[in-house]
Design a binder for these strands. Structure first.
Lengths: 358, 358
DNA sequence: TTGTACGCGTTATCAA
DNA sequence: TTGATAACGCGTACAA
């Protein structure tokens, strides 16, 4: 019966059936716990499974079930510590539900994103977690919409087209600016990404709100909105610090921008917080262990990951309402030692500039 | 012929064939560039493919080809920045060769590792990158050996059973210790993992070699070999600093241990490098941006990732010799500001202790 | 050069 | 309760 000389390969359900002296259908029923199997045969089949070390081939299962139990995830760069935390959180949750996560780095490049999107399509991912470089680019938005799969956008919003989980950057930024204002700062710089992406847009919003709440005008020169990269943080911090009327506080408005900002501060031999106060967006080892420790707008990235996975799993298990879900997570201001009152010398300068505002 | 009412799904090769008015075999030949296709029909098929937006289903391909173009990777924790760099490097290389990488965190737990190993088996990974928690545990070693797949061990060695890429920690450590000795230090502590794992074992070896080369005995109390975790670094650093005869230099012998060591140093209000010199193993943002910047034993993790992928790809493409390959990467000592001469007060103490050695 | 038919390992339907 | 059989989508001998 079992005449297969060159078969050192993995056993199939067929071989288990032969070994147990039953049909392949019966083995399948045992595996999937269909009750209609006599206990006696069930035991015999289980024994055969054990002795052969049989494990179902998930590729074949996928072909049949039209489901891969695989989630695709496109992020900027897994090397960014906060994103790694996110990935881990999502992965833990997904793995517990027997799903695998496949992560890919886009480097924020549109071509890579489109490529990866089609990669995940070919690989028949069951769902997608996306943190794309644009919320508006038609090609990308169309590509996302064309997926008839559960998609969760991470810190992005494409209204009415996909579930999303976002951070309340506006609120967090407003609190941070209010805090700096309360310390006496009147020239607070914000360096962040462009307003065409949720995080940049919301941070700018919060920045404005905090000023408005005090009836203060915003000096547009203090608002640097171009990129989230550390390199941009370095460049703009350098420019700000060497300007004729430098800020007394700088907010590093990107999750991995802080190193660039700190590098510039050191290059300019500015002391923190004596010469300039610093606040960063999202916590990291660097912010905690640098001296002085940097105050941050905090949220739990791993939890965001778990939530994201939950949303996805709910959709996949049909346990979700048909409407688009949009979760928004609050932030918390963690005060450390990087903020103090503005240097006394800036007091006079301050006024002349507030007047020079728009 | 094409009576499939509810078919808003992805087109199959079948539908492409119908659309082009050829048989399904011909479409397959076009897709796989089998030359024996008349240019005219080839064009017609390509047009059909384009207009239907057809993409081959890689699940079905996998079932046929018995290959998934997927590599499994088990590491301790993707959250460790250095490992994230490794993963990224490997991923870049693999993606270029049209392979996908599936990463899973083991938290160094044996049960998780076995579980993940069997997960990757079920999912029919084509190859594995493993950085396991043990090189000796029989159950694990057997599980690894039982895979008839290309496997590359990351910074681990199981002789004669799988390719491996390791870091020359012994050499790196020896240089680091020699450097500290040359600064005048005579009581240099090393905190690292157990000797049952390559990195710990090799670091301890290098530590001993550097002492031997100077004819110096090693005070066993200065060698703390228990774990690579930051928490262990914190504990042992605390213990060392509050001992009656503290070290004048401490080597943080784990890729993500530094934060723990630094935390302990600060808790004890010790100044770096005035009171204690510090060297870390493997570079990271933290080491670079903390003040003073920490000297490190450096190697390029992303390159290790790319090499690892290369080894794997060579095997998968049959372009590798049958013998087991064992690549070993050199390290480089990056001197920053965390090391200086030992404090003068330690001079007298030093001698009494060298004599008290084993 | 092109079409047909089979098999990859499952699950599910339908008879027995 | 169980066994035979038809898909799932693709690649490939083999036949035409």
């Amino acid at each position: 019966m079992n005449d297969k000389p060159p078969a050192p390969e993995r056993p199939t359900i067929r071989q288990v059936a032969d070994a147990a002296g039953v049909s392949l259908g019966t083995v399948s029923r045992v595996l999937n716990t269909h009750k209609s199997v006599r206990p006696e045969t069930r035991a015999r089949v289980k024994e055969a499974i054990r002795s052969l070390g049989y494990e179902p081939d998930s590729v074949a299962q996928s072909l049949r079930s039209r489901t891969t139990r695989t989630i695709g995830c496109i992020i900027r760069d897994i090397t960014i510590p906060t994103l790694a935390s996110f990935v881990k959180g999502a992965q833990d949750e997904l793995q517990a539900a027997n799903y695998a996560l496949m992560v890919a780095n886009s480097e924020s490049r549109k071509d890579r994103e489109l490529e990866l999107l089609s990669l995940f399509a070919r690989r028949r991912a069951d769902g997608l977690i996306l943190s794309l470089s644009s919320e508006e680019d038609q090609e990308i938005v169309e590509a996302v919409k064309s997926f008839h799969l559960p998609v969760v956008l991470l810190d992005r919003e494409i209204p009415r087209s996909a579930d999303s989980i976002t951070i309340n950057h506006a609120e967090g930024m407003q609190h941070a600016v209010e805090y700096l204002l309360s310390l006496g700062h009147r020239r607070i710089a914000l360096i962040t990404g462009k307003a065409d992406l949720h995080p940049g847009r919301q941070r700018i919003l919060g920045y404005h709100r905090a000023h408005e709440a005090r009836g203060m005008a915003v000096d547009p020169d203090l608002l640097r909105s171009g990129s989230f990269l550390a390199e941009y943080g370095f460049r703009e911090t350098s420019a700000l610090l060497s300007s004729s009327d430098p800020p007394t506080a700088i907010i590093s408005g990107g999750m991995d921008m802080l190193s660039g900002v700190l590098r510039a501060v050191r290059t300019h031999h500015a002391r923190i917080p004596e010469d300039v106060s610093i606040v960063a967006c999202s916590d990291c080892e660097l912010a905690q262990f640098v001296t002085p420790a940097i105050s941050v707008i905090y949220w739990d990235w791993a939890m965001v990951g778990r939530f994201t996975a939950r949303i996805l799993l709910d959709r996949l298990q049909g346990a979700a309402s048909p409407e688009v879900r949009a979760l928004r997570l609050s932030t918390e201001l963690i005060v450390r030692s990087s903020c103090g009152p503005p240097p006394a010398s800036s007091q006079t300068v301050r006024h002349s500039v507030t007047e020079a505002g728009p």
